[in-house]
Deep mutational scan, measured.
Amino acid sequence: NITAAIYDEIQQEMKRAKVSQALFAKVAANKSQGWLCELLRWKENPSPENRTLWENLCTIRRFLNLPQHERDVIY
């Protein structure tokens, strides 16, 4: 289940792992930094009809659900 909290989790994970938006986007969703920036802007007004947005957030959720040491190896 995806909630608005995922946006904060993304920010916290980037700080914790000391990774850039570009690197996080690449490893978590195989996307660009610009894409992640755009995604983070949706926090203010996520559209329930935007299926692509929710699919991408689900992809990021799966990455964030990995154990921390696995995420660190991927970075």
Rank of each mutant, 00 (worst) to 15 (best):
Asn1Glu: 11
Asn1His: 00
Ile2Phe: 01
Ile2Glu: 00
Ile2Ala: 02
Thr3Ser: 13
Ala5Phe: 15
Ile6Thr: 05
Tyr7Leu: 08
Asp8Tyr: 10
Glu9Thr: 05
Glu9Pro: 00
Ile10Ala: 05
Ile10Met: 13
Ile10Cys: 05
Ile10Asn: 00
Gln11His: 14
Gln11Trp: 06
Gln12Lys: 08
Glu13Val: 00
Glu13Leu: 00
Lys15Phe: 12
Lys15Met: 10
Lys15Gly: 13
Arg16Ser: 14
Arg16Thr: 12
Ala17Phe: 07
Ala17Thr: 05
Lys18Val: 05
Lys18Asp: 05
Lys18Thr: 14
Lys18Ile: 15
Ser20Gly: 13
Gln21Asn: 08
Gln21Tyr: 01
Gln21Ser: 13
Leu23Thr: 05
Leu23Pro: 01
Phe24Val: 02
Phe24Lys: 00
Phe24Met: 08
Phe24Ser: 01
Lys26Met: 09
Ala28Asp: 02
Ala29Pro: 00
Asn30Asp: 03
Asn30Met: 05
Lys31Val: 08
Lys31Tyr: 02
Lys31Gln: 03
Lys31Gly: 05
Gln33Met: 12
Gly34Trp: 14
Trp35Asn: 10
Trp35Thr: 12
Trp35Ala: 14
Leu36Pro: 00
Cys37Phe: 05
Cys37Met: 05
Cys37Thr: 13
Glu38His: 09
Glu38Arg: 10
Glu38Pro: 06
Leu39Lys: 11
Leu40His: 03
Leu40Met: 11
Leu40Lys: 00
Arg41Thr: 11
Arg41Leu: 09
Trp42Phe: 15
Trp42Arg: 12
Glu44Asn: 05
Asn45Trp: 13
Asn45Ala: 03
Pro46Lys: 01
Pro46Val: 15
Pro46Trp: 11
Pro46Ala: 07
Ser47Asp: 14
Pro48Glu: 04
Pro48Gln: 04
Glu49His: 01
Glu49Pro: 03
Asn50Asp: 13
Arg51Val: 13
Arg51Ser: 12
Leu53Trp: 05
Leu53Asn: 14
Trp54Met: 11
Asn56Trp: 05
Asn56Met: 14
Leu57Glu: 01
Cys58Arg: 12
Cys58Thr: 12
Thr59His: 05
Ile60Ser: 01
Arg61Glu: 14
Arg61Cys: 10
Arg62Ala: 07
Arg62Thr: 04
Arg62Phe: 11
Phe63Ala: 00
Phe63Thr: 02
Asn65Ser: 15
Leu66Lys: 12
Gln68Asn: 05
Gln68Val: 12
His69Lys: 15
Glu70Gln: 15
Arg71Thr: 01
Arg71Ala: 03
Ile74Gly: 12
